[in-house]
């Protein structure tokens, strides 16, 4: 009970950080519009490429053999443009500044758990672009000409599972972003390792190519690796290439990986901070 009481201010503190961050994000309306236009441009190119392959490739049945129709891929592309925004693409600017300038020590003076404080910050900075940019992309995708249009979900249960899965994906992305952040705490290594980690996550998430279209021998691995939970699992549930039974399993897989990354992040962080204190910042 005592533990619960002491955690309330922490939650409230995290919530207010979340609120400020969101307000900040709203200011950049033009940035949202411009960002959306690039996402849409990118999406259109992707769809064009897939359409060419589905229609004119020498082995044009290969897509169907892999279990995806062109219509499903179109939906996949739009949604991946939307949810790609959740993925860690960079470390939150404020946090990065604190890390590189060595102000982490100041942060330690606040009466908040540093890990979850940053977790809230990171989560907020990922969520805000989704509102502006995301809703523009979504609206645009729904009013496109039929062959370029985002289709409604395959089934209502699939949609419901997708929503669940997106929540888990959001947590997973944030947990992984935090893990990268703690790696970045080793300032001497620069941004290299952090960036490589982000990149690996991005590639294996399905954002480059739906995981189902990757080589058949890799399919099992691709499903179990953590980054399928970024994008591919929720989108499969939406377009209906994953049954709701396996959906439940996939979502628990997402949560498992989330826990793993949070644990790894917390351990790494306390280790780094201990070093920091010994060295005297």
């Amino acid at each position: 009970m005592k533990k619960l009481q002491s955690s309330i201010p922490i939650i409230r503190g995290c919530f207010s950080i979340f609120k400020i961050k969101t307000a900040e994000g709203f200011q950049y309306r033009m940035a949202g519009l411009a960002g959306a236009s690039t996402s849409i441009f990118w999406g259109l190119i992707e769809i064009t490429v897939y359409t060419i392959f589905f229609k004119y490739a020498n082995n044009r049945e290969a897509g169907l053999q892999a279990g995806m129709t062109l219509r499903q891929i179109v939906s996949y592309v739009w949604l991946s443009q939307l949810f790609f925004l959740m993925q860690p693409m960079n470390i939150d600017k404020d946090i990065l500044r604190k890390i590189t300038s060595g102000d982490v020590a100041v942060e330690l003076c606040r009466p908040l758990d540093l890990y979850f404080h940053w977790f809230a910050k990171t989560a907020a900075s990922r969520l805000t672009p989704m509102f502006w940019r995301g809703s523009i992309i979504l609206i645009f995708a729904m009013i496109m000409p039929l062959s370029y249009r985002l289709l409604p979900p395959e089934s209502l249960t699939g949609f419901f599972f997708m929503i669940l899965s997106i929540f888990s994906a959001f947590l997973l992305c944030t947990a992984y972003a935090m893990f990268i952040c703690t790696v970045r705490l080793n300032v001497a290594l620069g941004e290299g390792p952090a960036y490589i980690l982000m990149l690996i996550g991005g590639i294996l998430s399905g954002a480059y190519l739906p995981l189902q279209l990757w080589p058949d021998v890799m399919q099992k691995f691709l499903l179990y690796q953590p980054f399928a939970g970024y994008l591919d699992i929720p989108l499969r549930l939406y377009i209906g290439t994953m049954s709701t039974d396996s959906g439940l399993f996939a979502i628990s897989l997402q949560l498992c990986w989330t826990v793993v990354f949070i644990a790894a992040g917390k351990v790494l962080m306390s280790f780094r901070l201990k070093n920091l204190i010994i060295q005297g910042g």
Partner: peptide, 12 residues
């Protein structure tokens, strides 16, 4: 992405 796409679909 494009390499894997060619790998699955062959040339266009």
């Amino acid at each position: 992405g494009i390499i894997l796409l060619f790998y699955r679909f062959g040339s266009v």
